[in-house]
Simulated scan of single mutants.
Amino acid sequence: MIVEVTDSSFDEVVLASSRPVVVDYRAQWCLPCRLVEPVLAELDEELAGRARFVQVDCDLNPGLVARFGILTMPTIQLWRDGELAGVVFGARPKGALREEILTALL
């Protein structure tokens, strides 16, 4: 299950995680974000226990948007051991996104 992360919960949920974390920066009005959402949900199920998937609503969490300089949506950050291991900009097909995640995180 993809969890919503906020300005106040990001450090605890993402940086302190013992598992790799995939962070999806999105907005309700963003069509590419809506297209990638079911792809991430499928990958969340496939990689259950190996990686955690979370999302950030950019309109509701301007602190994270500013902190990480998020200019494009969707932006997908790949975190491992509290360190940024990779970034994917824009929507990708499932196979390409899976490969990016596996390469950076696992």
Rank of each mutant, 00 (worst) to 15 (best):
I2T: 10
V3Y: 09
E4G: 11
E4S: 14
S8Y: 13
S9T: 15
S9E: 04
D11G: 03
V13G: 00
V14Q: 01
A16Y: 00
A16H: 02
S17D: 08
S17M: 02
S18Y: 11
S18D: 12
V22F: 04
D24Q: 10
Y25R: 09
Y25W: 06
R26A: 08
C30E: 01
V36P: 07
E37I: 11
E37A: 13
P38L: 03
P38W: 05
L40S: 06
E42F: 13
L43R: 07
L43Y: 01
D44N: 13
D44T: 07
E45K: 15
E45N: 06
E45S: 15
A48N: 08
A48D: 09
A48V: 15
A48E: 09
R50A: 01
R52P: 10
R52N: 14
Q55V: 15
D57H: 02
L60Q: 12
N61C: 00
N61V: 00
N61R: 06
P62Q: 12
G63A: 12
L64I: 01
V65A: 01
A66V: 05
R67E: 05
F68V: 06
F68W: 12
G69A: 03
G69V: 02
I70S: 10
L71R: 15
L71D: 14
T75D: 09
I76M: 02
Q77K: 15
L78K: 02
W79P: 04
W79K: 08
D81Q: 15
G82D: 11
G82L: 08
E83C: 13
F89D: 04
G90C: 10
G90T: 15
A91G: 13
A91E: 07
R92T: 05
R92M: 07
A96V: 15
R98W: 05
I101Y: 00
I101F: 01
L102Q: 09
L102A: 00
L102P: 05
L102C: 09
T103A: 12
L105P: 01
L105K: 00
L105D: 00
